[in-house]
Simulated assay, not measured.
Amino acid sequence: MRHLIRIIAVSALFASSAVLAAPKLTVDLTLPEITEGQYHRPYVAVWVEDAKGKPVKTLSLWVWDEGHKWLKDIRRWWRKAGREDMSFVDGIASATRPAGHYKIDWDLKDESGKSVTLGTYTVFIEVVREHGGRDLVRQNIDLTAGDFAAQLPATTETGVIDIRLSGMAH
């Protein structure tokens, strides 16, 4: 009986470590505190496109509760991913966020839940603020190259953005 319990415990340990080691991409996004002028929380879209520019997955969409009519102001995301299906938008949108640090993870799956194929992708972060600025930053990632880290410089509407790909087999 003890032998069986040990086997189960070791199996559970291996299973949990496999889950922990699952590949993922993490975007650490900072929204700076802006004190000059009229401040409104920004609309933010974080999404991934494949090498052909086709949207793969929207990772995060932060909009004002009644802001659907303003979604088109998140220009690139709207043209690429948003305007085709408002029920999709309703399913992923959440409230705007105040200044602070936010972690956004991607499990390397597309909108349908299927794992993406190895290749090159681009992570986009678009931040738009009423009576403020508009910033669109991007970072290419190559899923065939293994683990990866990049730091994108601060912009008017974002602080430094860290992007990390981890758990990739070499």
Rank of each mutant, 00 (worst) to 15 (best):
M1H: 08
R2D: 09
L4G: 07
I8C: 15
A9Q: 12
V10K: 06
A18K: 11
V19W: 10
L20M: 11
A21G: 11
A22N: 10
L25Y: 01
T26E: 09
T26G: 09
V27M: 01
T30E: 15
E36A: 08
Q38T: 11
Q38G: 13
Y39E: 10
Y43K: 07
V44K: 00
V46T: 05
V48L: 02
K52R: 10
K52F: 06
G53S: 02
V56N: 03
L59F: 05
L59E: 07
S60C: 04
W62H: 12
V63Q: 03
W64F: 06
D65P: 13
G67I: 12
H68P: 10
H68C: 09
K69I: 06
K69Q: 13
L71W: 06
K72W: 04
D73N: 14
I74L: 14
R76D: 11
W77L: 00
W77Y: 04
W78A: 01
K80R: 10
R83W: 07
M86K: 07
M86W: 07
V89Q: 01
D90F: 08
I92F: 01
A93M: 12
A93W: 03
S94I: 06
S94H: 05
S94D: 15
S94L: 07
T96V: 12
R97T: 09
P98M: 04
A99Q: 00
A99F: 00
G100E: 07
K103V: 15
I104H: 03
I104C: 05
D105E: 14
L108A: 06
L108H: 07
L108W: 08
G113T: 10
G113W: 02
K114M: 10
V116Y: 06
V116Q: 04
V116H: 12
V116M: 11
T120V: 11
Y121F: 05
I125W: 00
V127S: 00
V128K: 03
V128Y: 07
V128A: 08
G132E: 03
G132F: 00
R134L: 10
D135W: 01
V137P: 02
R138A: 12
N140K: 12
N140S: 13
I141M: 07
L143I: 01
T144N: 13
G146H: 05
F148K: 06
F148A: 00
A149Q: 14
Q151I: 10
L152Q: 03
P153A: 10
T155N: 09
V160T: 15
I161T: 00
D162N: 13
I163E: 06
M168H: 08
M168S: 09
A169I: 14
